[in-house]
């Protein structure tokens, strides 16, 4: 079996998060911390500019990783997608005062995934690699738009304003980009 070191490292991280989730493994958590703290701290600093605040937000991210580790589901996404989603949400919460409501998987009204997640587990191993390749293949106008959305935390209508594009153009670029990415990952609708 051929496997590059990058995806092996990713599997390793998923396993570390699982160990934190199941048995509060502090050594596993320290390895996650060592791997991600510098990146997350820098990610915070890109937007908030204040080193002290970036440090606090990084620590908050890591404590959230510890707290929510049992909720991480490797069949639904990669460790870095999960960690940076937590980081991005905390960064936004910091400058927006209102609440950021989210669905709750433990809610009795929550409709769970119909198929067992285990079916996905093996093939999702290199999903991030495939997604990365598919994103490289996107036209630059679509890639640039995704970068603006994820790096500047702006809505699609703000992106239209910034780029001086009609809203319809921005919408169709977003739809085209994600239909390609979904196709690249196979059966994801």
């Amino acid at each position: 079996m051929k496997q590059n070191s990058k995806s092996a490292a990713k599997d390793d991280l998923a396993r570390l998060i699982a160990r934190v989730g199941s048995s509060r493994d502090i050594e596993a958590f320290e390895r996650i911390f060592r791997a991600y703290a510098p990146q997350v701290r820098a990610f915070m600093l890109q937007r908030v500019r204040d080193p002290q605040l970036s440090e606090e937000l990084m620590q908050e991210t890591m404590v959230t990783v510890w707290r929510k580790a049992a909720q991480f589901d490797p069949s639904r996404g990669t460790p870095s997608a999960w960690i940076f989603t937590i980081a991005r949400n905390l960064r936004i919460d910091n400058y927006r005062r209102s609440r950021r409501p989210d669905f709750d998987p433990n809610d009795p009204a929550f409709v769970p995934e119909p198929e067992p997640a285990a079916d996905h587990a093996l093939e999702t191993r290199d999903e991030e690699t495939r997604l990365h390749a598919a994103m490289t293949g996107l036209p630059s106008e679509q890639r640039d738009l995704l970068k603006l959305a994820f790096f500047e935390d702006v809505s699609h209508s703000e992106i239209a304003d910034r780029l001086g594009l009609p809203l319809g153009t921005v919408k169709s670029r977003i739809r085209l980009a994600f239909s390609k990415l979904r196709a690249a990952l196979g059966d994801r609708p």
């Binding site: 990146q39 820098a42 870095s80 997608a81 999960w82 991030e128 994103m135 995704l146």
Partner: peptide, 19 residues
């Protein structure tokens, strides 16, 4: 979750200088 993964890929592709 695909969009969140795409966000993660972008961050790792354009990594800020680790601190």
């Amino acid at each position: 979750s695909l969009m969140e993964m795409a966000g993660g890929v972008l961050v790792r592709e354009h990594p800020p200088e680790p601190l």
